Each structure stands twice: as structure tokens, then as C-alpha cells.
Computed example of a mutant assay.
Amino acid sequence: MNFSGAYTALVTPFRNGKIDEESFREHIEWQITEGIHGLVPCGTTGESATLTHDEHKEAIRICVEQANKRVPVLAGAGSNNTKEAVHLTQFAKDAGADGVLLISPYYNKPTQEGIYQHFKHIADTISIPMVLYNVPGRTGSNILPSTVARLHKDIPQVVGIKEATGNLTQASDIIEQSGTSLNVLSGDDFTLLPLLSIGGAGVISVVSNLLPKKMAQLCEAWDKGDIATARKLHYEMQPLNRAMFIESNPIPVKTALALQGKMDTDFRLPMVPLAEDNLEKLKSIMTDAGIL
């Protein structure tokens, strides 16, 4: 499976403390209509850390059903508990997901060998395409390029990595050591264009919740060799890219979608509503971008 282009790290809408299925389906449908290349339910942006197992499964099921094979679904199924990751990965496969996004174990900070054995155990148990997720700022550990290369070489199911260090030297080392058969996807919207320039395959994006067409068009322009258009779109989206991280993700992006009337601003603690001063900044940036 080739995971390339623009994938949206989907927000999970809530209403009255439960997943708002209607809003979620409408958001997914709009993403597909706008030309997004793929969808990622139950990532960090989907508040996966505060979903129950049943809700996690529900979100994957809804996304797979609504996408209906029109675009690939890369389901978040990671955990710092290897058995739990196996359980969620098996569910994602049974539900019809095209692949799984697997974060490296967080909090318990395994060694590089522990990280390798974690992913190997999942792959040995279940046959489904796997995209690793490296985000040291949240996990407390870094999947080193040599470990990525080892995993890709030893485990055919490891077909990609969401690289969210923001470090282009590390991304370059991954591509150098693993080769172009590994899809290296940006985990930071603002690094998409430079990552493409060194051989990256695309992005798992937060801002494409708001601008799916532009994010897809940037990837398509690059693939066609239209660097000027790709660069133009990159700079057009930069203010929103920054705005999505004025507070912890997904607080700004869910707030932006609520301002557009697409869902409620309903968060799970410990996520809380956007601070008032930042709300005014967000409104101003959205107005300038023509989406409010």
C-alpha cells in the first residue's frame, strides 16, 4: 500500500459527551468532496488519548464506512501497551481500514530495541500495512533513523512513517537509510514543502481539516513539477499552520471548525476551550484566510 499525498488527521466531534456521528460523517464527506487523498481517524488530533476503547473503535468504523473505499483510511491504533496496540490494530483491520498509524510507545520510554520489538510483535501478530508515528515531543523518545531503516528492512508491513520531529536532518537521514520505498510523511504542516523537496511522500495534516483542497493541491503541484504553485500554497497556508498550534492541538483546529458551524467546541478534559485572547487571534487569521 502506498500512502502518499495529503491525509487529514481528523478531528473527532463530540456532543453531550459522546461522538457526534452526524457531524463526523459530514466532515469526512466534505474532506473527500474537497479532494483529500486520505483520512486518519483516532490520531492525536482526534483526541485519541481520551477516547474509550469502544469510542476508538466507533470512530474507525464510522470513518471506514463513510469513506467507502473512495480514499484510503489509515486508522490510529497505537498504544504504549503492546497488547493494546495489537487489539486496536486487529479491530482496524477487521473494520476494513487500509492501514494503521502506530505511535511509538509513549511515557514508558523504551530503548531502540524495545521500540523495534514493539512494532515487530504487532506485525508478527497481524498482517496490515503499518505507518510508524514518531513524535518525540509527545512520547518522550525518538525513533532513530537506523531503527526506522531496520524496521522497514525486516518488516515488509512497515511502509511509512509520520515524522513529526520537525527536523529535516533526521527526515533526510531516514530517507537516505530506508530508501524511497518508505513513505515519509510530514507530521508538521509547516515542513511539508521542504520534506517533499528531499524525497518525502506527503503529510498527515492538521490544517487540512480546514483546507483539504489546498493541502491536496500542494502535493499534486509538487508531483507535477509545478514548484511555483506548491511554494505559493505553502506560504498561503503558513499563517493557519502557525495558528493551529497557538495552544495544544487539537484545541485551535476544533475551535476553528466550530466557528465555521461544522461541530461543537466540545473537548475532553484535560483539553479545555481556547483562551479568549487566542480566540480573537484565530478569528483574525481565519478571516484573512477567507474561511470565516
Rank of each mutant, 00 (worst) to 15 (best):
N68T: 13
T52L: 05
G78K: 05
E58C: 13
G46P: 05
V40S: 02
A49R: 08
A49H: 05
R61D: 11
E47R: 07
L74F: 11
N68Y: 05
A77W: 07
A67D: 12
G38E: 12
A49D: 08
P41Q: 14
A49T: 11
G43P: 06
G76M: 07
C42R: 08
H37G: 08
H37E: 04
P41R: 14
H37R: 04
G46E: 10
S48K: 06
C42Y: 00
E55I: 08
E58L: 15
K57V: 02
A75I: 12
K57H: 13
A49C: 10
C42L: 08
D54C: 05
G78R: 04
D54L: 10
G35F: 02
S48T: 07
E47I: 08
P41D: 15
T52K: 09
K57W: 02
G46M: 07
T52I: 04
A77N: 08
E55M: 10
L74R: 06
A77K: 11
R61I: 09
E65Q: 15
V40H: 03
G46F: 09
G46K: 14
T50D: 00
E58Y: 01
T52H: 12
E65P: 08
I36N: 04
H37S: 01
Q66M: 04
G78T: 07
S48F: 11
I62H: 14
A49Y: 07
T45F: 03
C63Y: 04
G76T: 00
V40Y: 03
D54Y: 08
T44F: 00
V71C: 11
G78E: 06
E58R: 10
L51T: 09
G35Y: 10
I60K: 04
H37L: 03
G43M: 05
D54I: 13
V40Q: 06
V64M: 08
H56M: 12
G43C: 05
R70Q: 13
H56L: 15
S79N: 13
N68S: 15
L51H: 14
K69N: 13
P41T: 13
C63L: 15
S48E: 01
L51I: 11
S79K: 00
A59T: 13
G35Q: 11
V73W: 15
R70S: 03
I36A: 04
G76Y: 02
L51W: 11
T52C: 10
